[in-house]
Amino acid sequence: MKLEIRNLSVEIGELTLLKDINLTVSEGEVVGVVGPNGAGKSTLLKAIMGLINVSSGEIMYNDKKINGLPTYERVELGLALVPEGRHIFPNLTVRENLLLGAYVIRKDKKKVEERIEFVLDLFPWMRERLNQLGGNLSGGQQQMLAIARALMSNPKLLLLDEPSAGLAPIIVSDVYKVISTLKNEVGISMLLVDQNVKKTLEVSDRAYVLERGRLVLEGRPEELYKEDIVRAYMGVKV
């Protein structure tokens, strides 16, 4: 698995959401993108999934150019996004939500059952709730379900958009425990976007700082100076 983004720009009318982004995610790597509200973090993930059109630049996945492909083909190729705000299907049961996650592998019934067992091992509490409606779960449980659902297709690269948004601190810790497990035990490559800088840098192998649509910093988490991140967030020199 290799994701390579070259000179990516996204413009909507006069508005420049992303400008000349260069970013890579290699096999087994967890890459974090941090930045303040409106920096373009979600836009970046949406562009990778084909939910919004890019104006210029290239999104290369395994050395194949994928911009222009519809979203469902990108999912078939092994990309999965856990969207901001969870977006689980409220009127489908937990099990049906998981089955939807396995939509691209639906023909292989055995594989689907294996994936269900896999995510139920990750989230044992879910076993009891398989027949409950997704909408009746708590916010934290819905976030877990959104992650579990994205894992059902056995993605090669998992994109996570603000997995800690709107959750109580203790739940945030749970979510990041899951992300650590995915990193250390499953070895899945991830591109993680979050406003929670501390948690993001803790789990990332490498991180980028995004500021008003541009990548201003890149490095290993311990190399990124606190001052630079603060500047990106506050827009002032410290």
């Binding site: 999934m49 939910l51 969207p83 689980i88 299907f89 939807l100 939509y103 691209v104 297709s153």
Partner: peptide, 11 residues
Amino acid sequence: QDVMASMLMGV
């Protein structure tokens, strides 16, 4: 129920 989420499922 959710067009965007369905797209992300590969539908």
